[in-house]
Each structure stands twice: as C-alpha cells, then as structure tokens.
C-alpha cells in the first residue's frame, strides 16, 4: 500500500475507530459483565456468581425455546440451501432460460419486502387454509425468507467459476450428474457453505415472523426472550445472551475456518 493511500495518515482516525468500537461493543460488554452479577437487580453489582447461568440452563421453557429455534433453523437451512442451490444452477448455468431476470428478482424478493408484510401474509394464508401445526408453519415460513440469503453467495460463487471446468468434465466423459457431484459442487462448496450459514443465522435471529406464528409448541428463542423482557429484565436474561454470543462466535469461527480451507478456484 502506497503512503498516499494509507488510511492511517488521516488525523484522528484511531480515536474515531475507538469510539466506533465502544459504541458497537460496550452494550454487549455490559451484558456479559452483569451476567456474572450475584444480585437480582440487573444494574447493581454485589459480587461474582454463576448462579444465573445455572438458572438459565435449568429453565425448561428456555431450553424448549432453544431446541425449537435450533430445529427450525436446521430444517430451514437444509431446505433453503437446497432450493437456493437449484435456483442458482438454473439461473446461472441454465441454457435458454426464459424470464431469467424476473425469476432472480422473485427469488430475492423476501430481501426487499418488509418482513412484517410477509409474516402477516403467511399468517393469513395459513389460517385461510386451516393449517394448524405451529412447528411446520414456522419451518415453512423460515425456509421462505432464508432462501435468498442462501441464494446470493451460491450465485456469486457460480458466477465466479469458469465454465471451463464443467466443460472439461463433460469432455472427460462425465454425465451431468457426475459433473455436478465431482466438479461443480466441490468447487462451489465454500459458497454453498456460506449460504447455509447465512440461512441458519437469519433463521435463528428471526423475531417478527416467529412471533406472528407463535403458538404453544412453537416458541423460538428470540420470541421467548422478548416474553421475558416484558416481565422485566433479570440477570438470567444476561446469562442467556452471553451464552448466545458464545455460540455465535464459535459458529463464526468455524465458518471462517472452513471457508479458509475451501481455497480459491483460480489456480494462478
């Protein structure tokens, strides 16, 4: 990097960066700090304790919400990624595909539509057709809005992949399925993985739709936490939040690790 374009030469940049990171992470640090507070009152420090963690892990309702969230996210990830992969293959690689632009826009529509609109629509649709299984409703709705998040990285990876590899595979007597299995999929795997991760995180994080479709057996973690807050914040909430942060960090680290191993397709 040349001296002229080195961002560090701007005055006050380091100070600004510090303020920015404080603004971003101070609230989180406060949550983590008070999760170890022994006192019942959230913001009065009286001593170190792990009892709120114990309380959180003992809370059967909380654990149910966690399990629901994980199950919904897992199902939504598998279906959304599969649909996204198929859509990307057709829209990027397909020959003579009609309405390519329109189809892509339709796949990506949940990104730009306000989620509240979608969730109301889903709610009305399900009640109209008399579909009552709360868990299935959540899984279907999550698959819908997770699909574009899985689609974008997969499409980007496919677009960045030279046709040469697939042509070489066909040239070397591989039929379409073998080409997909042994050449296309391994080469776009980092994109597929990134798409799946995004879908998983988006599903875990969702509140609006999950809240709208909330029924007895299908309360996700964000909806449950929101319910706790309505009763007033407790240190148990801090402990739950801290655990979620830990899991998120672990997942992000794993994602980075796998992406790093995926390597680049360009061999020059």
């Amino acid at each position: 990097m040349s001296h002229r374009t080195d961002v560090r030469r701007y005055r006050g940049l380091s100070g600004f960066a510090v303020v920015f990171f404080l603004w971003l992470y101070l609230p989180i640090a406060v949550v983590i700090f008070y999760s170890f507070n022994e006192n019942r009152l959230v913001s009065v420090w009286t001593g170190f304790s792990l009892k709120w963690y114990a309380a959180a892990l003992d809370n059967q309702n909380l654990m149910n919400a966690v399990r629901t969230s994980l199950e919904i996210a897992a199902i939504a990830t598998v279906f959304a990624t599969t649909i996204a992969l198929m859509a990307a293959l057709v829209l990027v690689r397909g020959k003579g595909v009609r309405f390519r632009r329109v189809s892509e826009t339709i796949v990506n529509l949940p990104l730009v539509l306000p989620e509240i609109v979608l969730s109301v629509a889903v709610l009305i649709l399900f009640s109209q057709i008399g579909f009552a299984n709360g868990f299935a409703k959540l899984a279907i709705a999550h698959t819908t809005f997770c699909t574009p998040f899985a689609f974008l990285p997969i499409r980007a990876r496919l677009q960045g992949m030279e046709m040469d590899f697939e042509e070489a595979s066909a040239d070397l007597y591989a039929n379409k399925w073998t080409t997909f299995r042994r050449v296309t999929l391994p080469l776009i795997a980092p994109g597929v993985f990134a798409g799946a991760m995004l879908a998983f995180v988006i599903s875990m994080d969702d509140f609006i739709t999950s809240n709208m479709l909330n029924t007895g057996g299908a309360t996700t973690l964000p909806v449950y936490i929101f319910g706790l807050i309505k009763q007033g914040t407790t240190p148990e909430l801090n402990a739950i939040s801290t655990l979620i942060i830990l899991v998120s960090l672990a997942v992000a680290a794993l994602a980075l690790f796998i992406q790093g191993r995926g390597g680049s397709m360009t061999d020059t």
Binding site: D164, E167, A168, D171, A174
Partner: peptide, 15 residues
C-alpha cells in the same frame, strides 16, 4: 460426454 474426442483447454481447466 459421449464423443470420443478430448480437449486440451486454453486455460487447461485442471480440476
């Protein structure tokens, strides 16, 4: 994939 011809690509296209 059913033609008994093989190609050496300009980019080589080695997997």
């Amino acid at each position: 994939h059913k033609r008994r011809v093989n190609t050496v690509f300009q980019s080589y296209a080695l997997f």
